[in-house]
Amino acid sequence: MNKPVISAKGLTKKYGRTAALDSVDITVYRGDICAVIGRNGAGKTTLFRVLTGLNSADSGEYTVLDRSAGEISSIMHRVGSLIERPAFFPNLTAGQNLKYYALQRGITDDANIDEALRTVGMYDERKKKFRKLSLGMKQRLGIALAFLDDPDIVFLDEPNNGIDPTGISELRESILCMNREKGITFIISSHILTELYTIANRFMFIDGGRIIRSMTKAELNKECMRYTAVETNDASRAVALLEEQLSLTDYTVTDTSQLRIYQSAASSAEINRILVQGGVEVSALYESGLSIEDFFISIIGGDKQ
């Protein structure tokens, strides 16, 4: 397994009496593209702010690239981020703004700046003042800053805001390419869940400041995939019968009485026949499955499944 690059335990942050983060435990591994999914005000941005050192946590501990909160400043040059809206100096051009931050990080080669601008399709706009850029262009510039000089970790908070469909597609390709070729770890929040689903390999669902579910893509697929649910009086006997007669391999037993069968080749009628003939009582048998949106709603609302 890859090495964790971010880990947090019991992370809590309060604004007044409201807990924006409430005992958050997370682990993100090197090379992950981790999607953080939650409603408005769920705590996504606060989580990003704490992990990037912009806000301090009230309690709990965390490490980024093996450095604890107190030592995090020494590795911040290896972290890129776009948190909330992109913020730049309005009277400087796009290129000058990136040059300013490049100088801060000790990057003297302008080729890095040009590469970051090209990655987000902003190279031709580099001489425009920031205040004259459109919302989408500003967002692209914010992403270019996050990508500057190939950091080890990139935090992107709602990166698709204001970006046109072509831009979203280009951004997706850039993220996948940088992740694949340079091993950059991404932590991304977005409300476009289908987009996140396309690129992420790890998912964290956050609500009310708490991480309510954390799973890999395979686990999410299993949760969302359509399946045949079988409720019986004897799940282990049912499994034995189905393994024997249907060569069943892809299934889970959620509790002692419910079996979820993910193999699409097995029809409900056939499953029912085998179980009844084998003497297993079937109290319910139905098709089910969720989209990622459905899954998200089901776990935050708990009643829409």
Binding site: T52, G53, L54, G80, S81, A87, Y101, F155
Partner: peptide, 21 residues
């Protein structure tokens, strides 16, 4: 002051240097 008013300080503190520096 301009770092705070335009919000640019977050770019510096989250990716370049710590608060002391």
């Amino acid at each position: 002051n301009q770092d705070f008013t335009c919000g640019c300080i977050k770019n510096t503190l989250s990716s370049a240097v710590g608060r002391g520096r």
